[in-house]
């Protein structure tokens, strides 16, 4: 357990120094959000309906960008081998990377979400709690998958492309459910509907946390 926090501390420290991941995700997602805005006629009503979808696509794209980096550090100077040489449980490496990614993406979301609601003229303050719940569950979902797959993609010839190709089809349930849940909240469809979607995200999160927990070792062990 403590190994998780040792690695977490190291990653946070390193990011604090460079701000590479958080900044690039942040700038990227803001740009995408703005550019999506231009795909609608000015003042269109559709934009509000499409907002949840745009929001999630923006976040997923941005996080793929960030998660791709999470193992690059480890692999490039052979640090992964340094980690593997230490008497550290392999799943601790996974859990720490998951936490790191989750923390960074959450930071990005905390900045992006308010700006997004301003750009897209959404009323979010009165449903902030519900949105936070969806953000938490959904983000956890695609981070669980993304962390696992970035350990794979970092070892392939086409790092940057491989992660989205692996990630998107598998995370479709997360995207569908998160988008629909967000829509349900914004259109005030009630707790019943919201819970229907969230239930599925919870199932996804739990199942894939278990699967990742057991398979991660096989990715990094030679």
């Amino acid at each position: 357990m403590s190994a998780v926090f040792v690695i977490l501390w190291k990653d946070l420290l390193s990011e604090f120094r460079t701000k590479e991941m958080v900044l690039s995700m942040l700038v990227f997602s803001l740009m995408v959000a703005v550019i999506f805005n231009f795909s609608f006629p000015p003042g269109s009503e559709f934009i509000q309906q499409a907002a949840p979808g745009i929001l999630w696509m923006t976040l997923v794209f941005a996080s793929l960008l960030g998660m791709n980096r999470s193992f690059v550090y480890e692999v490039d100077k052979g640090c992964m081998q340094g980690l593997m040489l230490a008497p550290v449980n392999r799943t601790a490496i996974y859990l720490s990377k998951l936490l790191v990614n989750f923390i960074f993406i959450t930071i990005v979301e905390l900045v992006v979400l308010p700006l997004f609601s301003v750009f897209f003229k959404l009323e979010v303050l009165h449903v902030a709690g519900q949105l936070a719940l969806i953000m938490f569950l959904g983000t956890l979902g695609f981070t669980i998958i993304g962390t696992l797959f970035s350990a794979i993609s970092v070892n392939t010839k086409t790092r940057e492309v491989m992660l989205p190709i692996l990630h998107f089809p598998v995370s479709i349930p997360i995207i569908i459910c998160s988008v629909q849940a967000t829509t349900a909240v914004l259109q005030e469809q009630g707790w019943q509907v919201l819970w229907g979607w969230c239930k599925l995200i919870v199932v996804f999160d739990i199942i894939f946390l278990i699967v990742a927990y057991f398979t991660f070792e096989f990715i990094i062990e030679e």
Binding site: I152, V170, L200, I207, T215
Partner: peptide, 14 residues
């Protein structure tokens, strides 16, 4: 193999 497992487990959820 890892992806084959993840992919199949995903089917019912999808």
């Amino acid at each position: 193999a890892v992806f084959g497992i993840v992919g199949f487990v995903d089917v019912p959820i999808v």
